[in-house]
């Protein structure tokens, strides 16, 4: 039975760890499907984590913190749009600028406002999101199998976890079953076709970036007001890049991107579990090596196993009407 409990706890962690990746990957999906590279998921996630923590601390409401984080991330997405859609700047450069700026700005502001280098004050329970115990989870606890699955794996997560898994089918539906999604996909494949259909290419890309900003804010808020009870320096820890890798690995499709996020979440959960545990026949593996597994997996998957990921045709190209 102990093994089963182990597996349950591993899956539970997987769902939790995958959550910010899923939000970020879905955010990236909207931007990139519309033809705008979003390398800035990392910086926006960091900004959202900071704003959510600070907002929640001042206003005593994690929800208000989330709303402020959304405003911050949408503004950053608009900035990215202004540089790379309106002014046709290099999209990667614009993203890198956002990432670097956010690392510095969050640390500096935390130091200026709270006197601690890169830390915000610890949030009280009413200032953060708490784990939700689903109905009947406690009473079902001891029922075999069902109890394990329902009470130990499905129940007891932060609200963002549930939102994330509901989000994926919604994103799929929006992207493939609505005219908004059709236009987003078209503008990332052949903006001229969209333009000649009488739709404004620029406004389509801005709309996609707006959705992008909203979704990435959830990832940041999850980090600083749910899983942790404060913001700390560079707390996004490469998750934005990992989510982008998951998006590419998932070929810009919500379902496969979800699988990729889960895989990264699983390896991360596994590495936490394996730290300090001797592997039979090998012995103790240095912790740094174990920590690196999700990234090694990324490289290996991207390099060899995924096959050719075909990006949206017009990605990275500012739209210029031809003469």
């Amino acid at each position: 039975m102990e093994n089963l409990a182990d597996i349950a706890s591993l899956l539970n962690s997987t769902f939790r760890i995958s959550t910010p990746l899923i939000f970020a990957a879905m955010a990236g999906l909207f931007a990139e499907r519309s033809g705008v590279i979003d390398f800035g998921l990392e910086g926006k996630m960091l900004a959202a984590a900071f704003v959510a923590a600070v907002g929640s601390y001042y206003f005593n409401s994690p929800w208000l913190g989330l709303v402020l984080a959304i405003i911050a991330c949408v503004s950053l997405s608009m900035l990215h749009g202004f540089a790379s859609v309106t002014h046709k700047g290099d999209q990667v450069v614009s993203c890198v600028a956002i990432n670097i700026l956010m690392i510095g700005l969050t640390t500096a502001l935390a130091a200026a406002w709270f006197g601690q280098a890169g830390l915000t004050p610890t949030l009280k329970d009413n200032q953060r999101f708490l784990e939700i115990t689903l109905p009947f989870a406690d009473s079902l606890q001891n029922v075999p199998i069902i109890g394990l699955i329902y009470s130990d794996i499905i129940s007891g997560h932060y609200i963002f976890v549930y939102i994330a898994y509901l989000l994926v089918p919604i994103v799929f539906w929006i992207v493939f079953k609505t005219s908004f999604g059709l236009r987003i996909r078209a503008v990332g494949e052949n903006p001229s076709a969209v333009d000649t259909a009488g739709i404004n290419v620029f406004s389509m890309r801005y709309k996609a970036l707006m959705v992008n900003g909203v979704l990435i804010a959830f990832a940041g808020a999850h980090l600083s007001t749910a899983v942790n009870a404060n913001f700390f320096r560079e707390m996004s820890a490469g998750r934005g890049y990992l989510a982008l890798a998951a998006l590419i690995f998932g070929k810009w499709h919500p379902k496969t991107a979800l699988i990729a996020c889960l895989l990264f979440g699983f390896t991360d959960a596994l590495q936490i579990r394996l730290q300090g545990v001797p592997i039979p026949g090998i012995g103790l593996i240095p912790v740094q090596f174990i920590q690196a597994t999700p990234y090694i997996l990324t490289v290996v998957l991207l390099a060899g196993f995924v096959g050719k990921a075909i990006a949206p045709n017009a990605i990275g190209q500012p739209y210029i009407k031809e003469r």
């Binding site: 079953k177 609505t178 005219s179 908004f180 059709l182 236009r183 996909r185 078209a186 494949e189 052949n190 001229s192 076709a193 969209v194 333009d195 000649t196 259909a197 009488g198 739709i199 045709n313």
Partner: peptide, 22 residues
């Protein structure tokens, strides 16, 4: 002015979908 990986139908209705939800 066609999106190559779209179906004929999708290309034709683009911009003139009629309703938000298909």
């Amino acid at each position: 002015m066609l999106v190559e990986n779209f179906s004929v139908l999708e290309n034709i209705i683009l911009g003139f979908e009629g309703e938000l939800v298909f």
